[in-house]
């Protein structure tokens, strides 16, 4: 076994560990939040403990999906067939795909726990609305999983694309940057989407007759929170598929590409959460005053657009780092 093959195997194991290690954080926190809310709900209305328990179980099963995505990637990496053709790029591919999936699962796991918790408390308040609450929770939680799915897609593309015809320098940095852009970029959107879905479940429990409006505004708000995760995926795709000129031994071009990924990934966290707050508040107040739905939705969208601007700055700087520097 040559040195590179050994390092590629090491990277596959480390990547697998990172994928599952980071990936377990979000789902565990989300499931714990759901259980904590279920306790509060049962304390409020012990007669419906069975229904609350059922809601918690279904919510936790969905919140766990992000950890299962991470498990899939971890197993692929741990049992990866490295072969004798491994290069230094293989090393970065394994590390990057593990990081991408692990980080990408954090936001979705935590976010999915919020609607599950709110549905448990809502079931205790309005036992008659249990079915409607669970449906709303499931839709909200499913949308929360989208950023983790983006990270899963990027991880798979990294693992199954042949980069061997590209120059090692700076492609190694582009590969790492791609994983970080999607992985970090998914955190904020997952959390933000969860906040919106939480408010929607609370709203359905507070005002059941506004359930349809609340679900629709929730989906609109969640769609906007997902945009920064899409920016992260866009930067990842550019980094993975753009052909870069060989850089010899110079580090600057490689660092520009790595920085582009870090810039977009970190830059997407804040807007995702901020847009989540804006939509959470709008959905919450629509439940109190359905007549103001149009004004609240407009304010929500304008607020989200402004919160999004910092994500756009990050996208612009990332694109400058890729195409200009």
């Amino acid at each position: 076994m040559n040195d590179i093959t050994m390092w590629a195997e090491v990277a596959a194991f480390v990547g697998g560990g990172l994928a599952m290690g980071f990936g377990a954080i979000g789902a565990a926190v989300g499931e714990g939040y759901a259980a904590a809310s279920a306790n509060a709900a049962i304390s409020r209305n012990p007669e419906v403990s069975g229904e609350v328990f059922k809601t918690m179980l279904v919510g936790q099963a969905v919140a766990e999906s992000a950890a299962i995505f991470a498990l899939v990637v971890a197993m692929l990496l741990v049992f990866a067939n490295v072969g004798e053709n491994a290069s230094w790029m293989t090393v970065t591919v394994f590390l990057s795909s593990g990081l991408c999936m692990g980080l990408g699962a954090i936001g979705s796991g935590v976010g999915s726990g919020f609607p599950a918790g709110a549905a448990c408390e809502g079931t205790a308040r309005q036992p008659a609305m249990g079915g409607r609450l669970v449906t709303n929770m499931l839709i909200g939680s499913a949308v929360c999983q989208t950023p983790a799915i983006f990270a899963l897609v990027v991880s798979f593309i990294l693992m199954f694309t042949n980069f061997s015809d590209r120059p090692v320098n700076p492609t190694w940095a582009a590969i790492l940057g791609a994983g970080l852009a999607s992985g970090l970029g998914a955190i904020g959107s997952g959390l933000g989407g969860g906040l919106v879905a939480q408010a929607s479940c609370e709203g359905v429990a507070r005002k059941p007759e506004a359930a349809g409006t609340l679900t629709n505004v929730m989906l609109l708000g969640q769609a906007v929170t997902q945009t920064t995760a899409i920016y992260g995926m866009l930067v990842s795709f550019i980094l993975m598929f753009k052909a870069f000129d060989p850089a010899g031994t110079t580090l600057a071009p490689a660092m520009a590409l790595l920085s582009a990924g870090i810039c977009m990934g970190i830059g997407a966290i804040g807007p995702g959460v901020g847009e989540g707050f804006a939509a959470q508040s709008a959905v919450g107040w629509i439940a109190r005053n359905e007549n103001a739905t149009a004004e609240l939705t407009r304010t929500m969208l304008v607020g989200q657009a402004v919160a999004e601007s910092t994500g756009i700055y990050a996208l612009v700087v990332a694109l400058v780092l890729i195409f200009v520097v």
Binding site: V58, V134, L138
Partner: peptide, 8 residues
């Protein structure tokens, strides 16, 4: 679970 609730 998701399909069941969406159908409902």
């Amino acid at each position: 679970i998701l399909a069941d609730h969406l159908l409902k």
